[in-house]
Design a protein around this nucleic acid. Sequence first.
DNA 1: CTATAATTTGAAAACGGTTTTCATTTTCAA
DNA 2: TTGAAAATGAAAACCGTTTTCAAATTATAG
Lengths: 132, 132
Amino acid sequence: MAYMTKQQQAVLACIRGCAEGVGAAELTELLHRQGETVGLTTVYRQLERLEKEGKVHKIVTDTGARYQFCSCYQSGKDCFLLKCERCGAVQHADCSRLAPLYRHLEEEHGFAIDPHRTLFYGLCRQCREAAE
Amino acid sequence: MAYMTKQQQAVLACIRGCAEGVGAAELTELLHRQGETVGLTTVYRQLERLEKEGKVHKIVTDTGARYQFCSCYQSGKDCFLLKCERCGAVQHADCSRLAPLYRHLEEEHGFAIDPHRTLFYGLCRQCREAAE
DNA sequence: CTATAATTTGAAAACGGTTTTCATTTTCAA
DNA sequence: TTGAAAATGAAAACCGTTTTCAAATTATAG
């Protein structure tokens, strides 16, 4: 791995530790609590870089973007993101049916899915039960 | 259908005529060119209402939201949105494999997909060919 | 080990899409 | 007709993000 500044390492380490996604301001706040001196601007810059490298998902919402460390990054599994519209949580799922669908879409519909950015919206089990 | 003001009818009619999605400012501009007197605020309000009613999709992007009339609204078909990351076009596709997948996700993974908000990102055929 | 160029940082300002405010206009109901 | 309720829209506020730019840090040359 190429050289990384202290701030770059801190941002990567911190977001890796966030199971749920975090916003840029929130992440900066976390870093400050850990004693790191990282400005908001730098956090934005690093998140942009990490997204381009495929290490982090950027999930754009009405109220601003959230970033989430991609657990598929080195596992070899396909990214499969489910976002609950009620509680907001984004989970990495694992489903063998996805790859065949994506292959079908590419071969028959001519559309090459980018699993890394594709996001399924819906309701998670807990929220569905809570809503009943 | 309940009563609709002149502005409400105009917004609905205008977005229905936009095959590709439009932004709020863009839609207002279109309405003005047609001689309609509709303010930007009202356009935002109507778009929000139409989205809640399931008549339009709200597609949130880095540079602002785009709205697109939902061609599935009365057809009974499932919504199946493909957004090309290169040319930006969003197309309503038609694929019989989607419903079984969604059923599986609900039954086995406990996650109820909202087809209306779920968006597949990737590359459309033209853009893939152009990129080669 | 300097000196100098290139990169990184971050506070403050700018930016821009969206929402809120509030006075005015329009519509509904009695 | 008349008063209440809803809709409108210009202007201001809002707020997440990006840009600016001077200072600090790091890499490279001499």
